[in-house]
């Protein structure tokens, strides 16, 4: 067996997730689902529909990102005077009051990170779809960073929910979550799911294929 043949043979094999049986998958056929002959579990070499799912989730997240930044995230009512803030206006408020480290945290965690995540995922998806073999190692690292950093965007939502529960003194002082918070939570969750549904092995598949072709 030549090296490419070996590689091809290796690519058509997969281990069952449930019973660990190594099964041979039919090569080159799209839109088929393979089942384990022993336990009946679905067997696939790569995450199913990884690209389509990731794309759908990334696009939805990008759409939600707009209202998440337009609608107020939090309405603070203090002594009857209520003030609604969007994510950006909150960060600006903090900056104006000299709390720039906090403003930076809010800006990075709530504005920059989701945006960069969306950009990173879109970039990975495009690069995979175009079959790019450009620095697969760095792209894999980018994916790992995206996955690790993702949950930290939820900090904002946690802060709002905790404050809501803590500060509810009626007219005196109360904090309510705005519509923006719902959208923002949607953005964070969808980007998490998108990162989850992306299969980084696809990066290497293309790299391998191009390597094999050359």
């Amino acid at each position: 067996m030549s090296e490419p043949e070996k590689a091809l043979a290796a690519r058509s094999l997969a281990s069952c997730h449930d019973c660990a049986l190594v099964v041979r998958l039919p090569a080159g056929r799209a839109h088929v689902a393979a089942r384990c002959p022993r336990c009946g579990a679905k067997v696939h070499r790569r995450k199913v529909d990884s690209l389509a799912r990731t794309w759908a989730l990334v696009i939805t997240a990008a759409m939600l990102y707009v209202p998440a930044n337009i609608y107020p995230v939090m309405t603070v009512t203090s002594l009857g005077k209520s003030q609604s803030d969007t994510i950006m206006s909150g960060a600006i408020y903090l900056l104006q009051h000299g709390m720039w480290p906090l403003a930076l945290v809010v800006f990075v965690a709530s504005v920059l990170v989701p945006l960069l995540k969306l950009a990173a995922l879109s970039g990975l998806l495009i690069s995979v779809q175009r079959g790019s073999s450009w620095r697969p190692r760095d792209r894999t690292r980018l994916y790992r960073i995206t996955e690790v950093v993702g949950p930290w965007s939820m900090v904002d939502i946690y802060v709002v929910t905790i404050l809501m529960a803590l500060v509810s003194l009626g007219q005196l002082a109360s904090i309510e979550a705005g519509l923006g918070a719902v959208f923002f939570a949607g953005v964070v969750i969808l980007t998490l799911l998108a990162a989850e549904s992306f299969d980084p092995r696809l990066i290497w598949d293309r790299a391998e294929a191009s390597h094999a072709r050359s």
């Binding site: 094999l13 997969a14 049986l21 190594v22 099964v23 041979r24 998958l25 039919p26 056929r29 839109h31 088929v32 689902a33 393979a34 089942r35 384990c36 002959p37 022993r38 009946g40 067997v43 529909d49 389509a52 799912r53 759908a56 989730l57 696009i59 939805t60 759409m63 939600l64 209202p67 969808l190 549904s197």
Partner: peptide, 30 residues
């Protein structure tokens, strides 16, 4: 020798696209 997987036909369109479509519809309505 490795066992062959049981093959089933699967719909061509992923159900996941419902999510952005719903998002678009809700957004438009709002």
């Amino acid at each position: 020798a490795v066992a062959d997987a049981v093959i089933e036909e699967r719909s061509r369109l992923s159900i996941v696209w419902v999510i952005p479509i719903v998002a678009v519809l809700v957004g438009t309505w709002l």
